[in-house]
Design a protein around this nucleic acid. Structure first.
Lengths: 224, 224
DNA sequence: TGTCGTCTGTCGGCTAGCCCACAGAACTCC
DNA sequence: GGAGTTCTGTGGGCTAGCCGACAGACGACA
């Protein structure tokens, strides 16, 4: 594991580019984006200290189908994929962790499919701010409306309107390139359901890995 | 592996319900849906003979986060999850397959995030028809506009308009509850890019499993 | 302190798609 | 062949959000 320090907005891996490492955020937040032919991009999931980027992509195809960027600066390590792969094949615990993380990450992405299709820009902005508020741990969120619009797949002026609406309700405050949550409770009630659902699944994932591994072990011994 | 015969529209597993089996379509098509609080549902991915449902969900949490329904009738088998799990821990080949299938399925879902957010109903209808046309292998597609609207997260009258537009261009024909592709080529050019991208990834996945396993094997022996 | 680049506020026009409703057509079942 | 159900066609009203544009405000930098 080598520490790696990347700036805000850095492209960790471009869509379609080769990938030789897996990245483990330890305080930073990565963003997984789908890039379309016309150049627009849209966020599908983000990855904080609970997860990793490159586990799936790097393992066999050695290519990332999606762009991955740094969305919040913080400590992060990376590791070459070969040794990880060797460990993966040796360790039942890693296999179990891998499967349950796959499941959780996939459920986040599937929730995003529904959210982006069916919820309003204001609701989605709340959800996004909550996710980042959790992961940035009170630090300031240095994002422009332009940036938010890009990753939410929305129009910049729609984002400005949503932000104004939240500011008028005293839920957030912001100025040029900076947003701050002032009323976390109200932010949660104004957000769509998607935040709470995904949060609960990640909490469950984080609480249970050892249990999962235990259960898996005992199940294996029963079966032999 | 036990053959199982389910009718069109059957809910294989409800969102949040316990899951004791993995399902392997051998001609049928399953649909993975996210269900929201207000009852609306939206398709995130579909699974044909190339894949399986329940690999992730059943393996540890024993709960499916998403609804899974039968979207096209055909042969399918299922298998209890315990023996599958035991095999998974024993076989490096299964682990490799699992990882590369995870990656491919996840990329389908991530493409859908972008597609649903940024492409028109008509483009998305084309994409969906192409996917089903591939998997139903020439059989008739017995779907109502109402049904399509639900799973696409669109309005029924919007779907009707899109279908009319395609009919006027002689790309498809349809009547009450039945759709047929008349001009596959034009359907592909009228569709958004998402169909071709996802198709290419699944083709790559299907062509390479043995190669993948070989590479993985040789890499392991090198490392020991 | 002035300059300059970037970000936000706002406007107007516009369109896709939502929502509801109803009529007529098609199919099913008796 | 008739009755009843379900599906499609179509209408109108409406809204969210797109799109482009521009001015003013902010902040960085010299």
């Amino acid at each position: 594991m080598t520490p790696i320090d990347l700036k805000l907005g850095t492209i960790v891996c471009e869509a379609g580019a080769p990938l030789e490492h897996a990245y483990f955020p330890e305080g930073c937040v990565l963003s997984l984006l789908t890039v379309l032919e016309n150049g627009s991009e849209i966020e599908c999931a983000n990855i904080g200290r609970e997860g990793a980027f490159g586990l799936f992509s790097a393992m066999y195809s050695r290519v990332s189908f999606n762009r991955c960027t740094v969305q919040h600066v913080g400590p992060m390590s990376r590791c070459e994929i070969e040794p990880l792969q060797v460990e993966f094949h040796k360790s039942a615990q890693m296999q179990d962790l891998f499967v349950s993380y796959s499941e959780t990450l996939m459920s986040q992405i599937m929730q995003t499919v529904a959210c982006n299709s069916l919820h309003s820009v204001e609701e989605r902005l709340c959800r996004w701010l909550l996710m980042m508020h959790d992961r940035a741990e009170g630090e300031k969120l240095t994002y422009t409306h332009e940036f938010l619009a890009r990753i939410m797949g929305a129009n910049r002026s729609s984002v400005t309107q949503a932000a104004q609406s939240l500011k008028n309700k005293s839920i957030i405050s912001y100025r040029r390139g900076l947003m701050q949550v002032s009323d976390r409770g109200k932010l949660e009630t104004t957000s769509c359901e998607c935040y709470a659902i995904v949060k609960a699944r990640f909490d469950a994932f984080l609480q249970t890995p050892s249990t999962v591994v235990q259960k898996a072990k005992s199940r294996r011994t029963e079966n032999h």
